[in-house]
Design a protein around this nucleic acid. Structure first.
Ligand SMILES: [Mn+2]
Length: 787
DNA sequence: CCGAAGCCGTCCG
DNA sequence: ACGGCTTCGG
């Protein structure tokens, strides 16, 4: 469920994009929605226990559509129940049973249509159903993970770890979990999706004075969302997003907001709300997730003081599981609910890949028929690496003829992306290997491998072991009360804290970082993190970058390993922002403005790096990624207010103190610096002004106030001329066709257009998809703009 | 203006 | 189940 009203609120920064814009990327998929909708298609069968694989087809279909666009899907399934979620399970079970009875009796009377209405109400997506899909994913070498608990946290973790470039979901919670690139509303007919990027949160289009998130840290954003009501918390009647925004802006901390509401006396706040809030926040921050490299569970964000969670809290964010069990669950071999071996509810369904995946299919070195895959699996030690292995391709030849399999390419011209994809996969594979290596080290406690770049570090597994994290103020979770909050800067803001995902993971590609993480200490007094990137990182699809030859290797190179005093932890961080790595030389530590601009679409100009006179330079150059929105344009009012975000919190609790909320591989040293900075009250005003100006320019460029946006990609809806933009986009893609959107015109899924699995399940053929794509491309116009 | 409650469609052919 | 959309009440 997510946060009520959050998506509508963020409409101004939604960007409608065509799937081809994501070519070359790996996108994590919140598979729950697909399973649920797929189950809708066969509710009767499921409810009555008749075997069916329609829901599998539904999912696979989408998997193939993504693959058609050279997107590698990485499916993530929900796992076990989290105590944090209301224990409404029983109620639900009851309702389902009632619906079933009703449905059955209607069916007995021959009223099948009516019966279906009720069958639909008892559909429940189970891990065993997910397993049916997993069987196909394995056969087609599509990566997946069954989350130990909520898919949300697992998805966030994968993105932070740099294993995926974005997340496809319908759940607005992902934004609260701190994800950077979230994609909603996949429309398979028009092959489009709605993108919301954390980096756009600083856009002025959200409301110049009304709901602006400029300067808001992830932490503040999370508080706003939580105050308005979330799954893990009883809500305060009468407080929605807008009110939460207003109150938070005024009172800065959750406890102050609560106090104010109480004083006002109009609304009733649940008892112990603040405690509940703190606990709920921990679920967003520290929920347990599976680390595919370490092959065990870790917290989404390390807990501040190492293992500070008391038993109750630990259970609240998901109990730890034995690594061997965790691995079985993650790979689908054990049921995340019963913890017993996975039961195959439909053993006769044995998917075989009729044809190999597009990406690998034509590779000369790869056998075209799925057989090879089976082998691969058998031999490999299991695990996700298999999925990233595909490229037997000869070295990295950049220009591989795109021989794509079947139809994929014909006419479309996109094939050259195959190379990219391969490279991208190679990068991810490397990343995973790196993780696994670390794991090996950790396990053996050996000290490492050293060499190469990755350098070895003694890894030890997790950073979580390290006792102290510095900094962090950021995310600090919630707050204890402090009487007089210091106004000045906020530490908090800084970041949001996330710490590096797992200690061991490096997130390389993740772009972002917005803010918080930038390697450099940002100096923003205001501190916020996230936004910082807003402008700067306009999310470029990796694909666009891929063509750059340097790309493949780069990502892995620049990593700084840091060791804590106890030597146990390593933080790996990249020197540059992942996003643009491609453009820079690997070793480059500083990013300059010039780079930014060369995105494939040329349209965007990112201001990143612009040298802002001030701050950055002063600091020593740490290059900022982009215009740092933290200083935004704006409103002093806002700035000042926000600037004061709770510092209080931190000081009180040690735990809080260490919580580092930063998401990226953060360098501890930098963190310290950052802190110092934050404390430093003097920000050069001028510097701020200069930065603001830059940011403004950046936005102008990005949203095209007046400028020519060139190839214009879709613009955030609220920006002017959205409609026009859409039109031009449409024209650009398919000048000749202008098809009115007609939802009711499904593509012809005739038998002959469908692939038939050996077990008779079907799937759309690539040819059909191709056709479908061509026929629907013109429908971009159909996007429903909010109007 | 804001939030809450209620209704609708979801898939498929 | 869940978001989107509409309507209703403060
Ligand atoms: Mn959720």
């Amino acid at each position: 469920m997510g946060i009520q009203g959050l998506l509508p609120l963020l409409k101004p920064i939604q960007i409608h994009r065509h799937l081809s814009d994501f070519a070359g990327q790996t996108l994590a998929v919140d598979a729950y929605v697909w399973l649920h909708r797929g189950a809708y298609a066969c509710a009767t069968e499921l409810a009555t226990g008749r075997p069916t694989t329609k829901y599998v087809d539904f999912c696979i279909h989408r998997v193939r559509l993504l693959r058609h666009y050279n997107i590698l899907p990485f499916l993530v399934f929900d796992g076990g129940p989290l105590p944090a979620k209301g224990g409404t399970e029983k109620d639900r079970e009851k309702k389902r049973a009632e619906s079933l009875d009703r449905a059955n009796s209607l069916a007995a009377q021959g009223k099948h249509t009516q019966a279906r209405e009720h069958y639909v109400k008892c559909v429940d997506v189970t891990p065993q159903m997910a397993f049916q899909v997993i069987k196909v994913l394995k056969a087609e070498s599509v990566p997946y993970i069954v989350a130990p608990y909520e898919a949300d946290a697992q998805l966030a973790y994968l993105e932070r770890a740099g294993l995926v470039d974005g997340i496809i979901t319908e759940d607005s919670d992902l934004l609260v979990f701190g994800c950077k690139n979230v994609l909603f509303k996949l429309d398979i007919v028009s092959a489009t999706i709605t993108s919301i990027s954390r980096s756009d949160f600083g856009s002025p289009s959200l409301g110049e004075d009304s709901l602006s998130l400029i300067g808001w840290s992830d932490c503040q954003f999370r508080w706003m969302a939580m105050l308005s009501g979330c799954d893990y918390l009883p809500s305060i009647p009468g407080i929605g997003l807008k009110t939460a925004w207003t109150l938070l802006r005024k009172y800065k901390t959750v406890q102050n907001v609560i106090r104010a509401i109480r004083l006002e006396g109009k609304k009733s706040i649940p008892h112990r709300y603040l405690d509940a809030f703190k606990l709920a926040e921990k679920v967003f921050l520290h929920q347990r997730v599976y680390d595919p490299g370490l092959e065990r569970l870790v917290h989404l964000t390390d807990c501040p003081t190492g293992e500070d969670l008391d038993e109750a809290t630990a259970a609240y964010v998901g109990k730890d599981l034995d690594p061997s069990l965790a691995k079985k669950i993650a790979e689908g071999d054990a049921c995340p609910i019963s913890l017993l071996p996975m039961e195959d509810i439909n053993p006769s369904f044995v998917p075989k890949s009729v044809r190999s995946l597009p990406l690998r299919a034509q590779d000369p070195n790869t056998p075209v028929n799925g057989k090879a895959k089976g082998k691969e699996k058998a031999t490999s030690s299991g695990g996700l690496l298999n999925f990233f292995t595909p490229l037997p391709k000869a070295t990295t030849s950049p220009k591989r003829p795109a021989t794509h399999p079947t139809s994929v390419g014909r006419a479309s011209g996109k094939r050259t992306l195959v190379d990219v994809m391969d490279e991208d996969m190679a990068v991810k594979k490397k990343r995973l290997e790196e993780l696994q290596r670390k794991r090996a080290v950790a396990l053996s406690s050996s000290r490492f491998f050293g060499g190469g770049n990755a350098d070895g570090s003694p890894i030890a597994g997790s950073s979580r072991l390290s006792p102290v994290r510095k900094h962090s103020k950021e995310n600090t979770p919630v707050l204890e009360e402090v009487e007089h909050p210091p106004e000045a800067e906020d530490l908090v803001a800084q970041e949001d804290g996330y710490i590096s995902p797992s200690p061991s993971l490096s997130r390389q590609l993740t772009p972002d970082l917005s803010s918080p993480v930038r390697p450099q200490p940002s100096k923003n007094p205001i501190g916020h993190e996230d936004d910082g990137d807003a402008v700067s990182s306009p999310v470029l699809p990796r694909s666009h970058r891929t063509t750059n030859p340097t790309y493949s290797i780069q990502p892995m190179l620049p990593m700084d390993v840091e060791r804590t005093a106890d030597g146990a932890r390593i933080l790996v961080r990249e020197s540059e922002s992942p996003c643009r790595t491609t453009h820079h030389a690997p070793s480059t530590q500083h990013i300059f403005p010039t780079d930014v601009e060369r995105t494939a679409d040329g349209a965007r100009i990112l201001v990143r790096g612009s040298e802002s006179p001030s701050r950055e330079q002063q600091m020593d150059e740490e290059p900022l990624d982009g215009p740092d929105l933290r200083f935004n344009f704006d409103d002093e009012e806002l700035s000042s207010e926000i600037g004061g975000w709770d510092d209080d919190t931190q000081k009180e609790n040690e735990i809080l103190e260490d919580t580092p909320p930063c998401s990226f591989p953060r360098d501890t040293r930098n963190e310290e610096d950052e802190d110092r900075f934050l404390y430093n009250e003097d920000l050069a005003e001028e510097a701020m002004a200069a930065v603001r100006a830059k940011v403004a320019d950046g936005w102008r460029a990005k949203f095209g106030f007046g400028a020519d946006r060139g190839a214009g990609r879709e613009q955030p809806t609220s920006m002017l001329k959205r409609r026009k933009t859409a039109s031009s986009e449409h024209l650009r893609r398919s000048p000749a066709r202008r098809i009115k959107p007609r939802r009711s015109e499904p593509y012809p899924a005739t038998r002959k257009n469908v692939d038939v699995f050996e077990d008779n399940t079907t799937s759309l053929s690539d040819d059909l998809i191709e056709e479908l794509v061509d026929n629907t491309r013109g429908r971009l116009e159909a996007f429903r703009y909010n109007r």
